[in-house]
Simulated assay, not measured.
Amino acid sequence: MVEQCNPSLWNDTTEKLLLHIFKVVDSGKPQKCKWKTVALKVNEYGYNFNAEQCRLKVKSLKQKYDRNKKKMKKFGESPPSEDDLSEVESVFDSLPDMRPTFTIDSGDTSTKKKKNQKRSIDHMLDYLEVNFEKREAEAKKRHSEKMELFGWCIEGRSQKIKIQ
């Protein structure tokens, strides 16, 4: 039996035990009651965790492992400690969601680059100038139509006044 302070809190010892049991239970094939089995085996050592707590802890350890792997690829980042990676790596590296057997590319990425190319300043200025000229021409046309309509209204009003 393993000694611990609180049988329902996670610490390094319980995490290592959980990872070891998870590795043994998780054969890569889906199992209906995998987390119940993991929780029962962890609780055999005197701990008090349920299936959901075990599932969430493995999920958080997986995310931490993934962050540490990405951190190692960046320049200027201090590498994570060896303890963080060595034990977790042996468990998660074989999982298909952490290291897929193969990946499929969805298509040619060169077309995406063509769509997102920045336009030159000259091209933008030409575009703005053409649009400005169109707007000005449309504004003049609307103005002349309004003036013509206004002229007809005044003409009709003045004829009505003469008739009376």
Rank of each mutant, 00 (worst) to 15 (best):
M1D: 14
L18M: 11
L95C: 12
M98P: 03
V24I: 15
Q117C: 02
K118G: 05
K32Q: 11
E3I: 11
N11C: 12
I161G: 01
I163N: 12
H20D: 15
F92M: 04
M1I: 13
K140F: 02
P96L: 09
T14F: 00
V25A: 13
P79A: 08
K64A: 15
G156C: 04
P79T: 04
E129A: 04
G76D: 01
D12A: 09
R119H: 05
L56I: 00
D122K: 03
L85D: 04
E129T: 06
D26G: 03
I163F: 10
I21M: 02
H20K: 15
Q159I: 07
C33T: 13
Y47C: 08
I161L: 13
Q159K: 12
H143F: 10
S94E: 12
Q159A: 10
W10Q: 00
D108W: 00
G151S: 09
D122T: 03
S90Q: 15
P96R: 05
S86W: 10
F49N: 01
K23V: 03
I121N: 04
D26T: 03
M1K: 13
E89W: 05
E3R: 11
D126I: 04
Q164A: 10
K71Y: 02
F49K: 01
E44D: 14
T37I: 14
C5Y: 06
K16R: 15
K141P: 00
L125T: 08
S60N: 13
E133P: 01
F75D: 02
R99C: 07
Y47H: 10
W152P: 00
K118W: 03
K146M: 05
R135F: 05
K113Q: 11
E133R: 11
V24W: 08
M1A: 14
H20P: 01
Y127K: 13
M124N: 07
M98S: 12
K59S: 13
V24D: 14
K114T: 08
C33V: 05
E82D: 13
K62A: 12
Q117Y: 01
S81D: 14
M98D: 06
K29Q: 13
C33S: 15
H123G: 00
D66M: 14
R142T: 07
D105L: 09
N6D: 13
V88M: 09
I154M: 07
M147V: 12
P80G: 08
T13S: 11
D126K: 09
L128D: 06
K73E: 15
Y127A: 09
E89G: 15
L17G: 03
E155K: 12
R55P: 01
V58Q: 01
V25H: 05
I161N: 05
Y127I: 05
K112R: 05
K16T: 13
M147P: 00
L17H: 01
N131K: 11
K71G: 04
L128M: 08
S158R: 08
K23M: 14
P30I: 06
N68P: 03
T14A: 04
I154L: 10
Q4Y: 01
K73C: 08
K141H: 06
C153S: 09
E138S: 08
F102M: 07
C153D: 09
P80V: 06
S110M: 02
Y45E: 14
K70D: 07
K36R: 13
K23N: 15
V38Y: 02
Y45P: 06
E129Y: 01
S106A: 05
Y45K: 14
G28W: 04
L40D: 13
R142P: 01
R142K: 14
A39P: 00
